[in-house]
């Protein structure tokens, strides 16, 4: 087998990573864009989504799809509500000071993570996918100048993985519609543009902040519910999504939603492809250094425009 099928397989795996990453990172980007704070606990909201998805599906008897759909509907709301509560009780009281917010969200990170460890335990637990059919994929090879279709061994994906990609695309379109077309989106954009002016026009900025913080966390939780049938739920699983989301948000330009999505696809795909050919640790080292250097030399991100 030549390199082509490997690349296709890697890009398919990468596309799933990219889809989930885009959702998580858009959540982080939204919070940063509107509230101008960095939420270090974002990865823990992701983890909480996965763990709660396991809990909800374990409560429901019957077909796997039943519990999964319920989790898909309920879990993001639960996590979003928790995040909004954290916003109102903690972040509001420190007046969204950027540096103190980071310290406070580091505290929230440990609280969520350790409470999960105390209640859910240290085990990784699987969630059954609602549908899961293996799809073998063909590959075209040229033998003596003539095309020849064959089915390479191991080149396959599952309907569920394709479903994850489709669901992520739908949600992202939904987020874009809300931000661009709806009244609440208009209010959020107004708050992002000029907090004081929005306040002067009677926009309840504090409630908008709580909503945005909740929405950001809910997006992370949703991404986690989608990925948990492929990856198991574990109390330490929040670290990687946090790091990758940071990378995506910084590369895409802080606070820019389209930039975030483009960067998520770029990073997700290259992560899938690079880790097929190189050591994943080395890939992570290079990605981390790259991001640090982007922040140092091009703080507006690779796709962002420098603000005046």
């Amino acid at each position: 087998m030549d390199i082509g099928p490997y690349l296709l397989l890697a890009s398919l795996e990468g596309a799933v990573t990219a889809a989930v990453l885009a959702l998580t990172a858009v959540g982080l980007s939204l919070v940063f864009g509107v509230m101008r704070v960095v939420n270090v606990a974002h990865g823990e909201f992701f983890m909480l989504g996965a763990v709660l998805a396991w809990w909800v599906t374990s409560l429901v008897a019957g077909h796997a799809a039943l519990g999964f759909v319920l989790a898909l509907l309920v879990v993001p709301v639960m996590v979003g509500a928790l995040a909004a509560l954290a916003d109102m009780t903690i972040l509001k009281r420190i007046a969204y000071d950027p540096e103190r917010t980071i310290v406070a969200t580091i505290g929230i990170l440990y609280i969520i993570q350790q409470v999960t460890l105390m209640t859910y335990g240290p085990d990784a637990r699987p969630v059954e996918p609602p549908f899961n059919t293996r799809l073998a994929l063909p590959w075209i090879e040229f033998v003596d100048g003539k095309p020849h279709i064959y089915w390479p061994w191991g080149l396959s994906t599952t309907t569920y993985k394709l479903g994850v990609i489709a669901a992520a695309v739908l949600v992202l379109i939904g987020v874009w519609l809300v931000m661009a077309k709806s009244r609440i989106g208009l209010i959020m954009r107004a708050t992002q543009l000029d907090r004081d002016m929005a306040l002067a026009f009677g926009i309840p900025v504090e409630r908008v902040y709580a909503l945005v913080f909740g929405l950001g966390a809910a997006l992370a939780a949703l991404a986690a519910v989608l990925i948990v049938p492929i990856q198991q739920a574990h109390y330490l699983m929040g670290g990687d999504p946090l790091l990758l989301s940071f990378i995506v948000v910084i590369i895409g330009g802080l606070g820019s939603l389209p930039g975030t999505v483009v960067a998520a696809i770029l990073i997700g795909l290259s992560d899938g492809i690079i880790s097929v050919f190189f050591s994943p640790t080395l890939a992570k080292i290079l990605a981390t250094l790259l991001v640090a250097l982007v922040l140092v030399f091009r703080p507006q991100g690779l796709f962002g425009v420098r603000r005046a």
Partner: peptide, 28 residues
């Protein structure tokens, strides 16, 4: 030399990233 070109939140993230790269290098 590198991180001091940034300030505030960016400084925090850049130092975090460098330390993470250092940690991964130890593992590598």
């Amino acid at each position: 030399l590198l991180a001091l070109r940034t300030a505030g939140v960016a400084f925090m993230i850049v130092t975090l990233m460098f330390a993470q790269a250092g940690y991964l290098t130890v593992l590598y």
